[in-house]
Deep mutational scan, measured.
Amino acid sequence: QEEEKEIKRLAKKFNASEEEARRAWKKAGGDPETAEKILKKKG
């Protein structure tokens, strides 16, 4: 599933848990760029 792959990639890229990545993904409405910004800010 595309979403799961994206979440795993985000978690790995930002050294975050999949739970954090999933939360960022949901907050971003499934937009990878926005999710990255959220995780970057958090990191």
Rank of each mutant, 00 (worst) to 15 (best):
Q1H: 13
Q1P: 14
Q1Y: 12
Q1R: 11
Q1G: 13
Q1M: 14
E2R: 09
E2G: 08
E2A: 11
E2Q: 11
E2D: 11
E2S: 11
E2M: 11
E3T: 10
E3P: 05
E3H: 11
E3W: 13
E3F: 12
E3A: 11
E4M: 10
E4V: 07
E4D: 13
E4H: 07
K5Q: 13
K5T: 13
K5L: 13
K5H: 11
E6L: 12
E6A: 13
E6K: 05
E6Q: 11
I7V: 09
I7N: 01
I7R: 01
I7H: 02
I7S: 02
I7K: 00
K8I: 12
K8D: 08
K8W: 09
K8F: 09
R9P: 01
R9N: 08
R9D: 07
R9Q: 08
R9A: 10
L10W: 02
L10R: 00
L10Q: 01
L10Y: 02
L10T: 01
A11Y: 02
A11S: 07
A11T: 05
K12F: 12
K12H: 11
K12E: 10
K13R: 09
K13L: 12
K13P: 01
K13Q: 09
F14M: 10
F14Q: 02
F14E: 03
F14Y: 15
F14D: 01
F14A: 04
F14I: 03
F14S: 03
F14H: 06
N15G: 11
N15C: 08
N15P: 02
N15A: 08
N15L: 09
A16K: 09
A16E: 06
S17R: 04
S17T: 14
S17I: 03
S17Y: 03
S17M: 03
E18M: 14
E18Y: 15
E18H: 07
E18K: 05
E18Q: 09
E18F: 15
E18S: 04
E18I: 15
E18C: 06
E18G: 02
E18W: 09
E19H: 05
E19W: 07
E19A: 10
E19L: 04
E19R: 08
E19P: 03
E19Q: 08
E20M: 05
E20S: 09
E20F: 04
E20A: 08
E20H: 05
A21M: 03
A21H: 00
R22V: 04
R22E: 05
R22N: 03
R22K: 06
R22G: 04
R22W: 08
R23H: 14
R23W: 13
R23T: 09
R23D: 15
A24E: 01
A24G: 01
A24M: 01
A24T: 02
A24Y: 02
W25P: 00
W25G: 01
W25K: 02
W25D: 02
W25T: 02
W25R: 02
W25Q: 02
W25N: 02
K26W: 13
K26Y: 11
K26A: 13
K26N: 13
K27D: 15
K27M: 12
A28P: 00
A28R: 01
A28S: 09
A28G: 06
G29M: 09
G29E: 10
G29D: 10
G29H: 12
G29S: 07
G30V: 01
G30P: 01
D31V: 09
D31K: 06
D31Q: 06
P32Q: 11
P32V: 15
P32C: 08
P32G: 06
P32W: 14
E33Q: 12
E33K: 13
T34P: 01
T34G: 12
T34H: 09
T34D: 07
T34E: 13
A35C: 08
A35M: 05
A35E: 00
A35G: 00
A35F: 05
A35V: 06
E36L: 04
E36Y: 04
E36N: 04
E36P: 01
E36G: 10
K37S: 05
K37H: 09
K37G: 05
K37N: 08
I38L: 12
I38W: 07
I38G: 02
L39A: 01
K40W: 14
K40R: 14
K40D: 14
K40I: 13
K40Y: 14
K41V: 05
K41W: 10
K41D: 15
K42S: 15
K42R: 07
K42V: 15
K42A: 15
G43R: 10
G43V: 11
G43Y: 15
G43F: 15
G43Q: 14
G43C: 09
G43L: 13
